[in-house]
Amino acid sequence: MAKYAFFLGCIAPLRYPGIEKSTREVFKALGIELVELKDASCCPAPGVIKSFSKATWLAAAARNLALAEKEGLDIVTICNGCYGSLFDAAHELHEDKKMLDDVNKILAEIGLKYNGGTKVRHFAEVLYKEVGIEAIKKAVKKQLDCKAAVFYGCHFLKPSNIKNLDDPENPKILDELVAATGASSMPRQQKMMCCGAGGGLRSQFGETAMKFTKANLEYMKASGAEVIVDVCPFCHLQFDAGQKELGIPFKVFHLSQLFGLAFGMSAKDLGVKL
């Protein structure tokens, strides 16, 4: 059985615990074991914390990577921000021996060491690559007959030169995953536009962030979509808050919640309001 260290991050467990719960249930149903990454912290967030101090960001990310390495497991994240931070930090540390040595001097102060052995995965690409569309289709018990606005967000695929998952301008991974549930991914304008939350915009320039969200919601509405499917709790938060605040109503699902519904799990157990 495939096994990963489950990195929770901040927004999923502390704002949308239904996303955490759905991921646990969906992975269990697909025969993948998620082991708790005990004592982990914030990734730390790529837009805010990394903008304030790259040194702190790198050392704290290395601590999370070291905790997973101690368990001998690769990390799976359910958030684009966590994926962005941990993947980028791992990439830098694996490429630059001096940087790794410097970070290890800090980790030594707390009795840890990172040897560069942790791979960082995003749950959606694990589902796509390790489980595969055919196996997911077999696990679907209830075909979802709905029109979806598929939202990739930014840090899932980009920067594409180090992630190499899909075409960052015209990707297909998530559209195929969503289609596996029977839902239709509706084509729309500006599909790859940012939700607006990242980079510290939501926490300091919330009105500007909401302008991004409004544009996205309007394109989604015009496409005929009924629900939004995201792969990041921070995008999820921005759209969920935005659809209420802006009066452009949408049901917002994390991909794990959409899968949970398609696998026949109850909305209540997934923390979803239908």
Partner: peptide, 20 residues
């Protein structure tokens, strides 16, 4: 606004508190 996020990181080890 950014200071608040930074303070949360110090206080909770996360960017937000547990309100759920």
């Amino acid at each position: 606004g950014h200071k608040k996020v930074a303070q949360n990181l110090i206080k909770y080890g996360h960017t937000v508190d547990n309100s759920k």
